[in-house]
Every structure is written in C-alpha cells, then in structure tokens.
C-alpha cells in the first residue's frame, strides 16, 4: 500500500504544480460575479440563484477537470516514457493504475473542498448559510466526479486522450440522461431499439443520482433547496458510485496489465 500511496502523492503533487488549481480561481471569480449579476436581476431570490449557479458550476468544473486530467493521466506517462522507469520497479501494474487514480481523486477532493468554501463564503456574504442539504449535494457532486474520473482513467489506459475524452464525455452525457433514456425505451414499440436503449442505460452509470436539481426522484420533483435528500440517500448514492468505480478500475487495471509498453 505504501507503493500505491507514493504514486498517489506524486500524481497529486504533479497536478498541483501543473497549475491545475488556477481553475479554482476562475471558478471563484465566476461564481461571485455571476451570483452578483443574476442576484441583482431577481429580487429576493439571490441566495437560491447563488446555490443553483454555485452547485452547477462546481459540478461542471470538477467534471471538466476530471476528464481533462483523467484522459491524460496514463497516456502522459506513456508519451513521456516515465512508465519505462516506474514499471520495472518492484510494483504491480495495477498498483500503478490505482495510485494514479487515487492521486487524481485526491486532487479533485481538495478542489471540491476549496470550491465548497468559496461558495460558502459567497453565501455568507449574502447573509445566508450553508445548510445541510447543500452540503449533501456537494458530497453527491464529488461522488459523481469520482465515477467520471474512473471512466476517464479506464479509457486512458488503452486509448489516446482525444478518443478517451470523447468517450468519457459521451458516457457522462448518457449517464446524466439515464432516466430519460429509460423513459424513451419504455415508450418505443420497436423491440430492438428499445432493448438497445435499455442496454445502454444499464451499462452507463446513472449519474442522475448525483445531480438532483430538476430531477424526479421517488416520484418527487427536486429543487436544490429540497430537503428530502437525506444522508441515507447520499450513502446509497456513494455506495453505488464506489461499486461502479471499483468495477471500472478493475477493467482498467486488467487492460493495463496486459498491454505492451513499446
């Protein structure tokens, strides 16, 4: 485990020094400016807007960063030939993939924390506070990003960054639309197309669990301020994310263990 941790820390350190964190600054400015601008347009709704914009911004930024770094994560090691130095060390190949994944997850976790603080600060400046539901939604956002990271790492373990990026974005979009795909599949009478859509919705992760705004869950329409998202729901969603991530990583490790490093 010490070996995995060494790779994790190294990945984290490289991401930090690679100035990934500048994106946080951008996020902060965007949230502050946007909430001020839109807040001025909507009397008495400033706080709700800040929460909506802030959470949507967090989710979008984190997913973009996860895909952007994730698809390059393994590929860069091959391109730069660093893999030739590390893999002949007494480590298993799966430890390498796991370490890289955990390093990126750690980076994204720190980013989530910082973004959460930025959002909290803006809310406090508007005289509101960060309520329990908002914290729970932030946790959900993080778990969604973990799943996306795993998918990006999976593709990057055998494909180029461009293709991996396309695939990951595709799966992300499909994942966010799982309930819609299922609804369409139920309505379609053409059996082949219907079962194809069913299949797709079964394979891609149901990311709608993690971005509940505007979704219908348990027959209820959810707004961000909806308090029904309890810790039990968050726990289930986190469990689902963990299992899905573990499976995808297993595939990534298996593929990575089999390949040749020419």
């Amino acid at each position: 485990m010490r070996k995995v941790w060494a790779i994790t820390l190294n990945t984290f350190r490289e991401a930090i020094r690679n100035k990934v964190l500048y994106s946080l600054l951008f996020f902060a400015v965007l949230v502050i400016v946007a909430s001020r601008a839109f807040g001025a347009l909507s009397v008495n709704e400033e706080v709700r807007l800040t929460v909506d914009l802030g959470l949507a911004g967090m989710s979008l930024f984190l997913v973009i960063i996860a895909i952007f770094i994730g698809v390059n994560l393994v590929y860069k090691e091959l391109e730069r030939k660093t893999v030739y130095t590390l893999l002949p060390k007494p480590i298993h190949r799966y430890q390498f993939v796991l370490g890289k994944f955990l390093g990126l997850t750690l980076t994204l976790f720190i980013q989530t924390l910082v973004m959460a603080f930025v959002l909290a600060a803006v809310l406090w400046s508007q005289g509101a506070e960060v309520s329990g539901p908002i914290v729970r939604l932030m946790v959900l956002i993080f778990f969604e990003v973990v799943v996306v990271t795993a998918i990006a790492v999976f593709f990057s373990s055998f494909s180029t960054p461009f293709l991996s990026g396309m695939f990951t974005i595709g799966i992300f979009l499909l994942g966010r639309s799982v309930p819609d795909i299922r609804a369409v599949a139920a309505k379609i009478t053409q059996p082949l197309l219907s079962s194809l859509l069913e299949g797709v919705s079964a394979i891609v992760p149901n990311l709608r669990y993690y971005f509940v705004t505007g979704a219908d869950i348990k027959g209820q329409h959810v707004s961000v301020n909806g308090t029904f998202v309890d810790w039990g729901y968050v726990g289930t969603a986190a469990g689902y994310a963990s299992i899905y991530t573990a499976l995808v990583l297993l595939f990534a490790m298996a593929l990575f263990s089999r390949r040749d490093f020419i």
Binding site: N10, R13, E14, R17, N18, R80, K81, T82, Y84, T85
Partner: peptide, 8 residues
C-alpha cells in the same frame, strides 16, 4: 533517453 516528471 530517459524522461521523468517535469514538475518534480
């Protein structure tokens, strides 16, 4: 022609 991590 070895190459290592730029930022380390």
């Amino acid at each position: 022609s070895p190459y290592f991590y730029d930022y380390l």
